[in-house]
Protein backbone atom coordinates (compact mmCIF):
# COMPACT_ATOMS: atom_id res chain seq x y z
CA UNK A 1 0.00 0.00 0.00
CA UNK A 2 1.64 3.21 -1.00
CA UNK A 3 0.97 6.15 1.26
CA UNK A 4 -1.48 8.88 0.41
CA UNK A 5 -1.47 12.54 1.11
CA UNK A 6 -3.38 14.15 3.89
CA UNK A 7 -5.35 17.18 2.83
CA UNK A 8 -6.39 20.32 4.60
CA UNK A 9 -9.72 20.18 2.81
CA UNK A 10 -11.55 16.89 2.64
CA UNK A 11 -14.76 16.93 0.64
CA UNK A 12 -17.11 14.40 2.02
CA UNK A 13 -20.68 13.35 2.40
CA UNK A 14 -22.84 12.30 5.26
CA UNK A 15 -25.76 10.36 3.88
CA UNK A 16 -28.62 9.82 6.30
CA UNK A 17 -30.04 6.44 5.34
CA UNK A 18 -33.05 7.01 7.54
CA UNK A 19 -34.05 9.80 5.20
CA UNK A 20 -33.57 8.09 1.86
CA UNK A 21 -36.75 6.72 0.32
CA UNK A 22 -34.98 5.29 -2.71
CA UNK A 23 -36.87 7.45 -5.20
CA UNK A 24 -33.95 7.67 -7.63
CA UNK A 25 -33.93 11.45 -8.17
CA UNK A 26 -30.25 11.54 -7.26
CA UNK A 27 -29.44 8.93 -9.90
CA UNK A 28 -31.25 10.89 -12.59
CA UNK A 29 -29.70 14.18 -11.51
CA UNK A 30 -26.30 12.52 -11.60
CA UNK A 31 -26.74 11.23 -15.13
CA UNK A 32 -27.93 14.56 -16.43
CA UNK A 33 -25.20 16.50 -14.68
CA UNK A 34 -22.36 14.23 -15.73
CA UNK A 35 -23.40 13.48 -19.28
CA UNK A 36 -23.99 9.80 -18.75
CA UNK A 37 -25.80 8.29 -21.70
CA UNK A 38 -29.27 6.84 -21.19
CA UNK A 39 -29.70 3.14 -21.70
CA UNK A 40 -32.81 1.68 -23.35
CA UNK A 41 -32.48 -1.58 -21.44
CA UNK A 42 -30.85 -1.06 -18.09
CA UNK A 43 -32.15 -4.23 -16.52
CA UNK A 44 -28.72 -5.81 -16.49
CA UNK A 45 -27.45 -3.88 -13.51
CA UNK A 46 -23.97 -5.27 -14.06
CA UNK A 47 -23.77 -3.48 -17.37
CA UNK A 48 -25.63 -0.26 -16.73
CA UNK A 49 -23.43 2.69 -16.17
CA UNK A 50 -24.42 4.98 -13.33
CA UNK A 51 -21.97 6.76 -11.06
CA UNK A 52 -24.46 6.78 -8.25
CA UNK A 53 -26.45 3.65 -7.52
CA UNK A 54 -29.11 3.21 -4.87
CA UNK A 55 -28.82 -0.20 -3.24
CA UNK A 56 -31.71 -1.82 -1.43
CA UNK A 57 -30.91 -3.03 2.08
CA UNK A 58 -33.07 -5.41 4.05
CA UNK A 59 -32.95 -6.43 7.67
CA UNK A 60 -33.47 -9.97 6.44
CA UNK A 61 -36.48 -10.64 8.65
CA UNK A 62 -39.71 -12.08 7.31
CA UNK A 63 -42.96 -10.16 7.08
CA UNK A 64 -44.11 -8.27 9.15
CA UNK A 65 -40.81 -7.69 10.96
CA UNK A 66 -39.21 -6.77 7.71
CA UNK A 67 -37.53 -3.42 7.23
CA UNK A 68 -36.06 -1.92 4.14
CA UNK A 69 -33.54 0.87 3.63
CA UNK A 70 -31.96 2.44 0.60
CA UNK A 71 -28.30 3.23 0.31
CA UNK A 72 -27.04 5.63 -2.35
CA UNK A 73 -23.51 4.68 -3.31
CA UNK A 74 -21.35 7.28 -5.01
CA UNK A 75 -17.60 6.87 -5.24
CA UNK A 76 -16.30 6.75 -1.68
CA UNK A 77 -13.30 8.96 -2.59
CA UNK A 78 -11.29 6.76 -0.27
CA UNK A 79 -8.52 8.28 1.77
CA UNK A 80 -6.51 5.20 0.91
CA UNK A 81 -8.02 4.21 -2.40
CA UNK A 82 -7.32 0.68 -3.51
CA UNK A 83 -7.83 1.77 -7.12
CA UNK A 84 -5.20 4.48 -7.44
CA UNK A 85 -1.97 2.60 -6.88
CA UNK A 86 -2.98 -0.23 -9.17
CA UNK A 87 -3.54 1.92 -12.26
CA UNK A 88 -0.65 1.22 -14.62
CA UNK A 89 -0.89 4.56 -16.44
CA UNK A 90 -1.70 7.10 -13.69
CA UNK A 91 -5.16 7.69 -15.08
CA UNK A 92 -6.48 7.96 -11.57
CA UNK A 93 -4.90 9.66 -8.62
CA UNK A 94 -5.65 11.26 -5.32
CA UNK A 95 -3.55 14.33 -5.35
CA UNK A 96 -5.70 17.41 -5.28
CA UNK A 97 -6.60 19.49 -2.27
CA UNK A 98 -10.02 18.23 -1.26
CA UNK A 99 -9.14 14.57 -1.65
CA UNK A 100 -11.33 13.75 -4.62
CA UNK A 101 -10.05 10.71 -6.47
CA UNK A 102 -9.64 11.75 -10.07
CA UNK A 103 -10.23 9.63 -13.14
CA UNK A 104 -8.79 10.95 -16.37
CA UNK A 105 -10.52 9.52 -19.39
CA UNK A 106 -7.99 10.40 -22.10
CA UNK A 107 -5.29 8.65 -20.11
CA UNK A 108 -7.25 5.52 -19.25
CA UNK A 109 -6.39 2.48 -21.36
CA UNK A 110 -9.33 0.47 -20.09
CA UNK A 111 -7.50 -2.36 -18.33
CA UNK A 112 -10.16 -2.42 -15.57
CA UNK A 113 -7.67 -3.25 -12.85
CA UNK A 114 -9.11 -0.41 -10.77
CA UNK A 115 -12.56 -1.94 -11.09
CA UNK A 116 -11.24 -5.22 -9.79
CA UNK A 117 -9.73 -3.45 -6.84
CA UNK A 118 -12.81 -1.50 -5.78
CA UNK A 119 -15.03 -3.40 -3.34
CA UNK A 120 -17.78 -0.78 -3.72
CA UNK A 121 -18.28 -1.33 -7.44
CA UNK A 122 -18.04 2.42 -7.81
CA UNK A 123 -16.15 2.18 -11.06
CA UNK A 124 -17.83 1.60 -14.35
CA UNK A 125 -16.60 0.69 -17.78
CA UNK A 126 -17.83 2.03 -21.09
CA UNK A 127 -18.67 -1.27 -22.71
CA UNK A 128 -20.03 0.50 -25.77
CA UNK A 129 -19.86 3.99 -27.21
CA UNK A 130 -22.34 6.26 -25.46
CA UNK A 131 -25.43 6.98 -27.52
CA UNK A 132 -28.08 9.63 -26.97
CA UNK A 133 -31.36 9.56 -28.85
CA UNK A 134 -31.23 11.93 -31.77
CA UNK A 135 -31.09 15.52 -30.62
CA UNK A 136 -30.82 14.64 -26.95
CA UNK A 137 -27.08 15.22 -27.08
CA UNK A 138 -27.97 18.91 -27.19
CA UNK A 139 -28.79 18.63 -23.50
CA UNK A 140 -25.21 17.72 -22.64
CA UNK A 141 -23.70 20.11 -20.17
CA UNK A 142 -20.40 21.72 -21.13
CA UNK A 143 -18.93 20.77 -17.75
CA UNK A 144 -18.01 17.14 -18.18
CA UNK A 145 -16.46 15.52 -21.23
CA UNK A 146 -18.27 12.64 -22.87
CA UNK A 147 -16.43 9.38 -22.43
CA UNK A 148 -15.78 7.11 -25.38
CA UNK A 149 -16.07 3.36 -25.16
CA UNK A 150 -13.22 1.50 -23.57
CA UNK A 151 -12.48 3.71 -20.59
CA UNK A 152 -13.36 3.47 -16.94
CA UNK A 153 -15.31 6.20 -15.21
CA UNK A 154 -16.68 6.94 -11.80
CA UNK A 155 -18.29 9.55 -9.61
CA UNK A 156 -16.12 12.66 -9.29
CA UNK A 157 -18.18 14.39 -6.59
CA UNK A 158 -19.23 16.64 -9.50
CA UNK A 159 -15.69 17.96 -9.51
CA UNK A 160 -16.59 20.57 -12.12
CA UNK A 161 -18.86 22.18 -9.54
CA UNK A 162 -15.85 22.46 -7.27
CA UNK A 163 -13.98 24.24 -10.04
CA UNK A 164 -16.96 26.47 -10.75
CA UNK A 165 -17.33 27.33 -7.09
CA UNK A 166 -13.67 28.27 -6.93
CA UNK A 167 -13.94 30.41 -10.05
CA UNK A 168 -16.99 32.13 -8.68
CA UNK A 169 -15.11 32.86 -5.49
CA UNK A 170 -12.19 34.27 -7.48
CA UNK A 171 -14.42 36.55 -9.51
CA UNK A 172 -16.10 37.75 -6.35
CA UNK A 173 -12.75 38.33 -4.72
CA UNK A 174 -13.09 35.57 -2.13
CA UNK A 175 -10.48 32.97 -1.29
CA UNK A 176 -11.10 29.99 -3.59
CA UNK A 177 -9.53 27.72 -1.01
CA UNK A 178 -11.94 28.74 1.72
CA UNK A 179 -15.33 27.99 0.25
CA UNK A 180 -18.36 28.45 2.45
CA UNK A 181 -20.63 25.59 3.35
CA UNK A 182 -22.94 25.12 0.38
CA UNK A 183 -20.80 26.95 -2.17
CA UNK A 184 -19.93 23.61 -3.63
CA UNK A 185 -22.35 20.71 -3.48
CA UNK A 186 -22.82 17.76 -5.77
CA UNK A 187 -25.75 17.31 -8.12
CA UNK A 188 -27.18 14.44 -6.06
CA UNK A 189 -26.95 16.43 -2.85
CA UNK A 190 -28.84 19.25 -4.48
CA UNK A 191 -31.48 17.02 -6.04
CA UNK A 192 -32.47 15.01 -2.97
CA UNK A 193 -35.76 16.45 -1.69
CA UNK A 194 -35.33 14.62 1.60
CA UNK A 195 -31.99 16.23 2.28
CA UNK A 196 -30.54 12.79 2.87
CA UNK A 197 -27.15 13.88 1.60
CA UNK A 198 -25.09 16.57 3.29
CA UNK A 199 -21.97 17.57 1.44
CA UNK A 200 -19.07 19.70 2.51
CA UNK A 201 -15.57 19.83 3.90
CA UNK A 202 -15.28 17.18 6.58
CA UNK A 203 -12.26 18.97 8.04
CA UNK A 204 -13.92 22.36 8.28
CA UNK A 205 -15.83 23.01 11.53
CA UNK A 206 -17.87 25.66 9.73
CA UNK A 207 -19.33 22.99 7.47
CA UNK A 208 -22.28 21.00 8.70
CA UNK A 209 -20.89 17.70 7.52
CA UNK A 210 -17.98 18.13 9.94
CA UNK A 211 -20.27 17.48 12.92
CA UNK A 212 -22.45 14.91 11.21
CA UNK A 213 -19.64 12.49 10.53
CA UNK A 214 -18.80 12.44 14.23
CA UNK A 215 -22.26 11.17 15.15
CA UNK A 216 -22.29 7.89 16.98
CA UNK A 217 -24.63 6.68 14.27
CA UNK A 218 -22.15 7.51 11.53
CA UNK A 219 -20.29 4.73 9.80
CA UNK A 220 -18.48 4.09 6.57
CA UNK A 221 -18.70 1.19 4.21
CA UNK A 222 -16.16 -1.57 4.77
CA UNK A 223 -14.21 0.57 7.18
CA UNK A 224 -12.12 -2.32 8.47
CA UNK A 225 -10.61 -2.96 5.07
CA UNK A 226 -8.66 0.26 5.48
CA UNK A 227 -9.90 2.23 2.52
CA UNK A 228 -10.74 5.25 4.69
CA UNK A 229 -13.72 6.53 2.66
CA UNK A 230 -14.72 10.19 2.59
CA UNK A 231 -18.37 9.20 2.31
CA UNK A 232 -20.09 8.61 5.64
CA UNK A 233 -23.46 7.09 6.24
CA UNK A 234 -25.72 7.80 9.17
CA UNK A 235 -28.44 5.57 10.47
CA UNK A 236 -30.11 5.23 13.80
CA UNK A 237 -31.03 1.69 12.86
CA UNK A 238 -28.53 -0.80 14.19
CA UNK A 239 -29.23 -3.34 11.47
CA UNK A 240 -28.44 -0.77 8.81
CA UNK A 241 -25.14 0.11 10.44
CA UNK A 242 -24.36 -3.57 10.67
CA UNK A 243 -24.75 -3.89 6.91
CA UNK A 244 -22.09 -1.25 6.45
CA UNK A 245 -19.35 -3.71 7.09
CA UNK A 246 -18.74 -7.42 7.45
CA UNK A 247 -19.08 -8.62 11.01
CA UNK A 248 -18.38 -11.99 12.49
CA UNK A 249 -21.23 -13.23 14.63
CA UNK A 250 -19.74 -12.19 17.95
CA UNK A 251 -18.62 -8.78 16.81
CA UNK A 252 -20.41 -5.65 17.94
CA UNK A 253 -21.36 -2.79 15.72
CA UNK A 254 -20.59 0.80 16.63
CA UNK A 255 -23.24 3.24 17.88
Amino acid sequence: MSSFKEFKIKWGMAIDLDKCTGCGACMVACQAENNIAPQPDASNKLKSLNWLVVYELTNGKPFPEHEVAYLPRPCMQCGKPSCVSVCPVIATEKNEEGGIVSQIYPRCIGCRYCMASCPYHARYFNWFDPIWPEGMDKTLTPDVSVRPRGVVEKCSFCHHRFMQAKDKARVEGRDPNALNDGDYITSCTEACPNGAIVFGDVNNPAHKVHELVKSKYAFRLLERLGTDPQVYYVSRREWVRRLGDNYLENEKVKG
Binding site: S85, C87, G110, N126
Partner: peptide
Protein backbone atom coordinates in the same frame (compact mmCIF):
# COMPACT_ATOMS: atom_id res chain seq x y z
CA UNK B 1 -7.96 -3.38 -22.87
CA UNK B 2 -10.64 -0.94 -23.81
CA UNK B 3 -8.36 1.43 -25.69
CA UNK B 4 -5.80 -0.63 -27.61
CA UNK B 5 -4.62 2.49 -29.41
CA UNK B 6 -3.34 3.72 -26.09
CA UNK B 7 -1.60 0.51 -25.17
CA UNK B 8 1.75 2.25 -25.30
CA UNK B 9 0.76 4.46 -22.37
CA UNK B 10 1.76 1.48 -20.28
CA UNK B 11 5.38 2.21 -21.12
CA UNK B 12 5.27 5.96 -21.54
CA UNK B 13 3.07 6.95 -18.62
CA UNK B 14 4.03 4.06 -16.39
CA UNK B 15 2.91 4.15 -12.79
CA UNK B 16 5.77 2.62 -10.88
CA UNK B 17 3.51 1.71 -7.97
CA UNK B 18 1.33 -0.56 -10.04
Amino acid sequence: IGQPLRAWFGYWHANVHS
